[in-house]
Amino acid sequence: MSFTRSRCARALAAGTLSVALLSAGTAAAFAANEKPTPTPTMHMTGKPKPTVSPMAKASITLTANKSSVTAGQSVRLAGRTTGLKVGSPLALQHEVNGKWTKLTPTTVVKRNNSYAMTAKLPKGTHTLRVVSANKAGKAVSPTVTVKVS
C-alpha cells in the first residue's frame, strides 16, 4: 500500500507543479506585447525580407576623377549610397554666393548602390555635392572642389 500512496503523491505533486508552471507562463504571455517589434516582412517563399529601418539615415559619398581641369573638359563624379532605393533620383548641386543651386547632370542609384555622372563646368572654382530626397529626409554628400581654368 505504501508504494501506491507514494506513486499517487508523486503524481499529485507533478500535477501541481505543472499547473504552477503553466499559469506563470500564461501570465507572462499576457504581460508581453501582442506583436514583436519590428515585424519582418515575408517574401513569397516565406523567408523574411530584409528592410531598411525608417530610423536608418541615408548617406551618399562623392568623388571627382579630377580636381583641376581646363575649360571644356568634363569631370566624372561618382560615389555610393546607403539607405536609398535603387532608382532613387540624385542631383548635382554647386554653391554660388552661399546658396546651393541645381546643375544639369542628374542620375539615379544603380543596382549596386552606386552612381556616376559627367559634368562640364564653366571657369572658376566649384564646390559640388550630390543630393537626394527620400521619405526619411534629404541625403547630402560631402563636398568636392573642382577648379576650372
Rank of each mutant, 00 (worst) to 15 (best):
S6G: 05
R7D: 12
A9I: 08
A9N: 12
A14S: 11
G15N: 12
T16F: 12
S18T: 14
V19Y: 07
A20Q: 11
A20D: 08
L21P: 05
L22C: 15
A24C: 11
T26G: 05
A27D: 08
A29T: 13
F30M: 13
N33C: 05
N33M: 04
K35E: 07
K35L: 12
P36Q: 10
P36N: 08
T37S: 09
T39Y: 02
P40H: 11
P40K: 05
H43A: 10
K49H: 05
P50L: 09
S53M: 00
L62R: 02
T63Y: 09
K66F: 13
K66H: 15
S67N: 13
S68K: 14
S68A: 15
S68R: 02
T70F: 15
G72L: 15
L77W: 03
L77G: 00
G83I: 05
K85P: 01
G87E: 00
L90F: 04
A91L: 00
Q93A: 14
Q93H: 09
Q93W: 14
H94N: 11
V96I: 11
N97G: 12
N97V: 10
G98E: 03
W100E: 03
W100M: 11
L103D: 01
P105A: 11
T106K: 02
V109P: 06
R111N: 10
N112F: 14
N113F: 03
Y115P: 06
Y115A: 08
T118V: 15
L121M: 09
K123N: 10
T125E: 09
T125N: 06
H126A: 08
L128H: 06
R129H: 01
V130L: 00
S132K: 00
S132N: 02
K135A: 10
K135E: 08
K135D: 07
G137Y: 05
G137C: 07
V140T: 10
S141T: 02
T143N: 03
V146R: 02
K147V: 12
V148E: 03
V148Y: 02
V148P: 00
